[in-house]
């Protein structure tokens, strides 16, 4: 189909169409781009493959959580107060929360920061994908990586004797989505404001700090007193509590949901205001 077979679409573009047969002239403007779902799906797949192919990203997103899981379940370095639960049951929800943080936050912040520095974000924003499609593709890419993480971690955990509360699985999925939203927003806020090297350092450091004192692996209540009060207010603590609530007791504590929603709103607002594309 060429322009000569099709009537020009709008008054403003007829001139351009007339001098460009066989090219972009045919059909409506929208027809020149592939459908929105295909663009976003292509971007999500592109992002997912980029992360799963990158050795350092795999280390943070897959190897690290599995090592934490093995370390806490199979060894007794840490004298855990499991509150009467089996060790695997007690630890696995927190490890899944760590996995969410590593992908939605650390991995995404670093990838976006370097893409921003290399002009990738700007180039893709000029294609029909646009900025909105780019963001949607990133979020879907994060969720796709999380599916891989959950399969691997749950597989290892089940082998170690994990028996989750099946009734809590839908609630756990909701907690994962909420946590993903909050930590992706934090990742974009960081990636859109700091230099790439700075993001590399900060994103890894924050992950380690939250692992140790953020109430994600172990209940905030088991931390020392001032930290315990702070940790339940952190997105990490809220996500950890939500996962434990869902998979140990079948219900997410409402307070954790409120905290995660609050962080998502605040960080999302900040990222949309402060994110610089250049």
């Amino acid at each position: 189909m060429t322009s000569s077979e099709r009537a020009p679409t709008t008054a403003t573009t007829t001139g351009a169409d007339a001098v460009h047969p066989g090219g972009p002239a045919s059909g409506g403007d929208r027809n020149l781009a592939s459908p929105a779902w295909r663009r976003v799906a292509a971007q999500a797949s592109f992002e997912t493959r980029a992360i799963l192919r990158n050795g350092e990203q795999l280390l943070v997103t897959i190897v690290l959580p599995v090592m934490v899981l093995l370390g806490l379940v199979r060894t007794s370095f840490l004298d855990l107060d499991t509150g009467g639960y089996a060790r695997a049951d007690f630890v696995t929800p927190g490890v899944l929360a760590v996995a969410v943080m590593s992908t939605a936050f650390t991995s995404q912040a670093i990838a976006t920061a370097f893409d921003r520095r290399n002009g990738v974000l700007r180039l893709l924003a000029t294609t029909p994908l646009g900025r909105g499609g780019l963001l949607a593709g990133k979020v879907l890419g994060v969720l796709a990586v999380e599916v891989v993480q959950v399969v691997v971690i749950a597989g290892v955990a089940l082998a170690l004797g994990w028996r989750p509360d099946v009734a809590g699985i839908p609630a756990a999925i909701g907690a994962v989505l909420l946590g993903t939203a909050a930590f992706t927003a934090l990742a974009l806020l960081l990636a859109g404001t700091l230099r790439a090297e700075g993001v590399l350092a900060v994103a890894n450091l924050v992950l380690v700090l939250l692992l140790v004192g953020g109430g994600v692996l172990l209940p905030a209540g088991q931390l020392s007193v001032p930290l315990a009060h702070a940790a339940v207010l952190l997105p990490s603590g809220a996500l950890g509590e939500a996962m434990r609530g869902a998979l140990l007791d079948g219900a997410v504590p409402p307070f954790s949901v409120v905290v995660l929603l609050g962080w998502t709103a605040a960080l999302g607002w900040g990222a949309s205001r402060l994110f610089r594309w250049h």
């Binding site: 020149l32 781009a33 292509a42 980029a50 990738v120 180039l123």
Partner: peptide, 26 residues
């Protein structure tokens, strides 16, 4: 658009990048 700094992600294969951009168009 061809940007001055390229706008190419470093970890991706050249052919894959081109196919990816092509997927944005009908």
């Amino acid at each position: 658009v061809m940007l001055q700094d390229g706008g190419l992600p470093t970890g991706v294969r050249a052919g894959e990048m081109l196919r990816h951009v092509a997927a944005m168009y009908a």
